[in-house]
Amino acid sequence: MTSSGAKPTADAFADISSPLTGGRREPVVRRGQKGLRDAPAAWLLIAPVIVLFGISVIYPLIDTIRLSLFDIKGLAPAKFVGLGNYAALFADATFRNTLLTTLIFTLGTTLISVSLGWTLAMLCSFAPRHTLPFRGMFFVTFGISEAVSGYMWINILRPDKAGLLNSLIGSVVPGFQHSWLGDPVTALWSLIFVASWSGVGLPLMLCFAAVQGIPKTVLEAAYMDGAKPMSIMRHIMVPLSMPGVRVAIFINLLGALRAFDIIYVMTGGGPVRATETVGYFMYRESMTQFKLGYGAAATVVLLVAVLVVSIPAIIQRTAGAK
């Protein structure tokens, strides 16, 4: 924002003299003028990126969609089945169950990690310097690989006496023993908790950054007007932290939708498929059963779900950009 509070335009940025140009005023690049004259050079410069993007994203995407139209089982020859895999997929009770599990897992982890991350960010923002180590520790969990944290939590949630959680509860409730990952109900919620634990660092940092971005003058003015901490939080910090919350929700939703590692390590989709998400279903069908066409169809469904989540967020994030 400019000092006057008005948003600067792209043209205004183009007119700013850069220190790198020695203060000389560069001519404004107008759309359709010099841009067109430079087109070959521009294409040449972005060609490597386009080629890499094509090889690593576009080609696999198109090939996955192509595979999803074939019935491929093991080493047997592929048979074209059109949309048959999709019809079979939605008729498959197991797949429908994985959709529900994915929904619960995605909403559960997003809700817990974002709300916890946001709450911690609000609390930390009152004493930014003193809470630095605390924020650092939380963010470290975001950096731990899901496989590693999965193995760590398997031991914490062990069903026997060696399990840390059972020991802790057992010290209060003698004789307590529960198989957190073997009970279909607690297995899914244990996974949601673990995924939220490792995901809380990012919302914390994003929300904290958003709060730190609030101009000091606004907060000082509020204090001078006699606003109490709760009022400042309610009327200033909460609304102004929302951009961070939105980004955190978006990133968490995408991560949870595609979740695989932690499920693979901790439960293998069990017990009795209670923790099987679409990501794991896709792996099982494609890699264990080697039903590549069927697995590819599940991948496309997951892709559509990711797009449904992403597109509104991308549109919203880029709405103001030219």
Partner: peptide, 8 residues
Amino acid sequence: NPATMLAT
């Protein structure tokens, strides 16, 4: 119990 078996 079944839950322990299924987690082992």
